[in-house]
Design a protein around this nucleic acid. Structure first.
Lengths: 156, 156
DNA sequence: TTGAGTGCAAACTTTTTGCAATGTT
DNA sequence: AACATTGCAAAAAGTTTGCACTCAA
């Protein structure tokens, strides 16, 4: 299965980096990584916490947050700060092609899209300002036409 | 003065829309708008609150937040959610040309830049997905070379 | 054995809410 | 006078921290 290979890849990197950094291989870290790689969406820390609890693998929130930080640092997951919600959202880094986000301001649904021109822009700016650019985030806010999207009258 | 005209323009709109919506012309709303239009940066709600207090015009935080929401809705100010800080940041909408942001992950400084290609991308995506796109946000995260930028060793 | 990592609860930060007091219309 | 708006303080929401206990090395 596609996602399973991605998890194996991520796990191998986590393994290697944990050893390299002299950290400990705790059950929690691997369980959390596995849970994340079983998902295909943009989730909040709280959702991950609830999911694990529901699957009878309870971890404390502190551990969830600690682990998310570690996985972001290692590049195994990506953190987003969308403008329409308070909480940070995460997604796995492998097995999903690089993409940008189109957020529906009515129903909060996230649509992913790719456009190679963004990388071109990033390269131009990096060169112009002689700056080392680490990453970019392009978010479009719009109104999706999907069914079930509750259009607020004031947004029409 | 440049910024003063921008404030007058924003104030006129606020005036008109307040009447239109049957809201009340409170001193607070105009003071807050004026304070915002005297600034040229990306500030947090708390900073605005402190500024007003320092100028001997105290408003409650509730009022600051309420007013910021109103001004965003009316398009007189712009709200940003940058990924490196917790709090939302705001800037005035008039008198500043449309721009994107380059954030230094070391010192949190905000550099503004313009690139017309972003609008092109937005238009393509809007057409492709047959979606009404209201706004876009492109944020680049990098390491600036400005003096006083405290480079964290782990980021090098 | 040892100290990194965990769980828990308390603290903290940012934002929202409830309610009585105020002031615009 | 009516009620939208304010101030204040308390609550919420998301995240971080302190500390005692646990378990991987």
């Amino acid at each position: 299965m596609y996602a399973k290979n991605d998890f194996q890849k991520a796990k191998a990197i986590l393994d290697a980096r944990i050893e390299e950094m002299g950290l400990r291989k705790t059950v929690e870290r691997y369980k959390i990584l596995e849970e994340i790689y079983s998902r295909d969406d943009h989730f909040e820390a709280e959702e991950l916490y609830d999911d694990l609890k529901e699957k009878n693998f309870s971890v404390s929130k502190a551990t969830v947050y600690n682990c998310l930080d570690l996985l972001v640092d290692l590049g195994l997951i990506i953190r987003h700060q969308f403008g329409n919600t308070h909480a940070a959202r995460y997604e796995r880094a492998f097995g999903r092609k690089q993409h940008s986000h189109l957020i529906c301001v009515n129903c909060n649904r996230v649509l992913e899209f790719c456009d190679p021109r963004i990388q071109t822009i990033q390269n131009s700016i990096a060169e112009f300002y002689q700056t080392n650019i680490i990453e970019h985030s392009l978010i479009l806010y719009g109104q999706c036409q999907k069914e079930g999207c509750k259009h607020h009258p004031e947004n029409q």
